[in-house]
Amino acid sequence: MSTVTGQPNPKAKTKLSPDAATWLRMYRQMLAIRLFEEQVNELYTRALMPGLAHLYVGEEAVAVGVCEALQNDDYITSTHRGHGHCLAKGASPNRMFAALLGKEAGYCKGKGGSMHIADPATGNLGANAIVAGSVGIATGAAFSSKYRGTTQVAVCFFGEGALGQGVLYEEMNMAQLWKLPVIYVCENNSYTEYTHCSETTAGDMAARATAFGVHAETVDGQDVRAVHDVTAKLVERARRGDGPAFLLCNTYRHHGHHVGDISREYYRSKQEERLWATERDPIKLLSNWLVANKHADAATLDKVHAELKSEMQKAVEFAIAAPYPSADKASEDVYA
């Protein structure tokens, strides 16, 4: 656990005003997640992937905007829809694909799969397949960083479905009481599995945090620059000792709840999906902005696309070729 040293990190200063190179890097990161997920869709459709996959397509600006405001030794916890968080925090596509295919070379050596990517080297405490399952872990990591006297911040990603879980409120209460450096990032994509949030969530979402005195912000989750800017401020606050925050990011998943969820009209309209995939697509929004402000031209962006496409292709090939763990490994790692 080389990155989790328990020592204050002298470099732990958040960049508050990113330059063009940074925006371009975020573009690359978002596109990497998009192309990664397209490969996952393909793998699943070709029946090469065991289990389920919950694609992050459409929500990339949240993971990238947030993680770009973090240091390597800051912590995150992720969800069933977690590929984007893990990649944005620094996971390698090779080992991610290998993990998704259940290969020994994957993160977690074939024990975790798509919903349980974890990686101490990048501060990733783990994706969690229990809705709201990691709110305690993230809050505990923040408790630990304060106890040990480091400046590490913990970010807890969850969907708006997690607002239905009581443990979230227990954690926010303690985080505020004890001024813990944790940021609760609620990715509101409007739907749980197949149900609109208006049918599951009473009242105002952000008000649930402010009721505890937790500082809350709401942001357009399709605008990576906005997500990054507000996160950077919340991270600064948390490092200063000003306590937790709740960041509500309004976003949308382009695909179904999981790859097999293809007939969706009983819960949301094609027209709504089309709107979010065109006018509200986070990658298009950023590329338009980059080009309009002359930070990049179309050729540069095309080049990035081509590079990433080939990188993902190679990563998939790596994962397909990688061996499965031998069956005798099933009983390893139950106890440390």
Binding site: V4, Y75, T77, L125, V135, G136, I137, A138, T139, G140, A141, A142, F143, S144, S145, Y147, A154, G166, V167, E170, E171, N173, M174
Partner: peptide
């Protein structure tokens, strides 16, 4: 649930 979960995260870190 809250403080047990918090302990899990504190133990991991």
């Amino acid at each position: 649930a809250g403080f047990t979960g918090l302990a899990v995260g504190a133990a991991m870190t």
